[in-house]
Design a protein around this nucleic acid. Structure first.
Length: 416
DNA sequence: TCTGGGGTCCTAGGACCC
DNA sequence: TCTGGGGTCCTAGGACCC
């Protein structure tokens, strides 16, 4: 049996933990630059605020319903996530952190009352972190996902649902519309509807060969899992296979120097994560885009895949390559709105055999360690490259909550 | 004025080799 | 004019997730 534990409206709940006066009020959390909605409390969903809605389009809703608005505070959310995951880990010998707010737990062989067990983790997470949790338990991961939806949907279940019989499995799948199935997105849902498949249950009745022909092996595996045959396995966290830093800008950039500074900073951020997991990268993508919503200027997007002459995790070397790449895709007289850097083809820094001729400069290793340590101790951008001398950008974060968990200056004060 | 960011996996088709 | 077959590697693009 597997459990899927999922935090309810995670970002919104994080904001609430440190400000209980928000209980019962509609809350939304906005993306970087306060661009669009990325999380909503139940109350905000109820008044009709859609996921992904641009902030400027919902101003009226916000005013009418006194919606509490927050800029995203990922330092806080990451920290809360770690606390929740640590608690959940104590409930199983094997868990998979599936996303910032979701965790699969392998409960096979556990001699416990599963419903009680789910209620217990939910209570403990609630008491220790203040985050509301829903738990779905079933024989496979895909069914645990379904069970979790049901746990969320019906309050009388108290946040926990167990699928432990064929009858419950069928009932759950007949209840779930095809577009809400994990692994079936817009594209496949439309195709399946056209084939007369309206629910998850209909999907499980399709011939396997048909499913594979439409949705490749991925769909076939999903179908088996939904039939109750454990097929999707636990994927225990190892290293990331790619590391990306991408951002929309607060305004249009058109000068090469401005993009240069942004790209250098993105590389620095990515490279630090790269070193943290003790990898080196062999390829890098650099991309830039103009504003796709602007009808007055033709949309321009371009990217370049760089094959590095040697694997490296040195920010200095990576920035050098990235800037060469940037120059190859930069066009003058355009207004850039978004850019990013993706590190790919990551190899283990310790296992790598240096080449006879071309290698990352060994002096950089020590230097990077020093920089990482300084930045860790003194805040993110204590040490930057000279190319980053002028920080011309400012993220718009008008509604930022405090760094309750990560900064001594921003701890909550309790007055007795 | 204002529209997110960070990931994973699979496949078809081309390049290249013998 | 005729013009194989099989293997591997790589990559772009498409699908999905939260």
């Amino acid at each position: 049996m597997y459990a899927l534990a999922d935090c309810n409206n995670f970002y919104a709940s994080c904001e609430r933990v440190f400000n209980p006066t928000l209980n019962g009020k509609p809350i939304v959390v906005l993306s970087n630059n306060d661009g669009c909605v990325i999380a909503r409390s139940n109350e905000a969903k109820a008044v009709g605020i859609k996921m992904g809605a641009p902030a400027f389009q919902i101003e009226r809703l916000i005013r009418t319903h006194d919606v509490q608005v927050f800029s995203s505070n990922f330092v806080l959310y990451g920290d809360m996530s770690r606390r929740v995951m640590n608690i959940l880990a104590s409930y199983t010998p094997s868990h998979e952190i599936y996303s910032i707010d979701e965790c699969f737990l392998d409960l096979s062989g556990m001699r416990v009352d599963l419903r009680e067990y789910g209620l217990k983790m939910r209570r403990q997470v609630g008491r220790w972190t203040g985050i509301p949790l829903s738990v779905g338990i079933a024989p496979t991961k895909a069914l645990a996902k379904v069970a979790n939806r049901i746990a969320k949907k019906y309050p009388e279940l108290q946040g926990v649902h167990v699928i432990d019989s064929e009858e419950k499995r069928v009932k759950a799948l007949k209840w779930l519309p095809i577009e809400d199935v994990w692994g079936i997105g817009r594209r496949y849902a439309r195709k399946l509807r056209a084939m007369g498949v309206n629910t998850a249950y209909d999907f499980t009745l399709l011939p396997e060969s048909l499913v594979r022909s439409v949705m490749t092996v991925v769909g076939g595996n999903l179908q088996r899992d939904m039939l109750g045959i454990p097929t999707l396995e636990m994927e225990i966290a190892e290293k990331k296979q790619s590391i990306a830093t991408t951002r929309s800008f607060d305004r249009d950039y058109n000068r090469l120097e401005e993009l240069h500074e942004r790209i250098a900073t993105f590389v620095m951020t990515s490279a630090e994560k790269l070193r943290q997991q003790q990898s080196m990268c062999r390829r890098m993508v650099v991309f830039i885009e103009t504003n796709r919503f602007n009808d007055k200027e033709e949309f321009y997007a371009n990217s370049v895949l760089l094959k590095l002459p040697f694997p490296t995790s040195s920010s200095l070397e990576l920035v050098g390559f990235a800037i060469e790449g940037l120059k190859s895709i930069y066009r003058e007289h355009k207004h850039y709105k978004r850019a990013g850097v993706i590190l790919l083809d990551l190899v283990d820094a310790n296992a790598y055999q240096p080449s006879l001729f071309f290698n990352s400069d060994p002096k950089h290793k020590k230097l990077m360690e020093t920089i990482d340590n300084l930045n860790r101790k003194h805040g993110k951008t204590m040490v930057r490259l000279a190319s980053q001398d002028e920080l011309t950008h400012k993220m718009r974060r008008l509604h930022l909550s405090r760094a309750y968990t990560s900064s001594f200056n921003e701890l909550i004060e309790i007055h007795l």
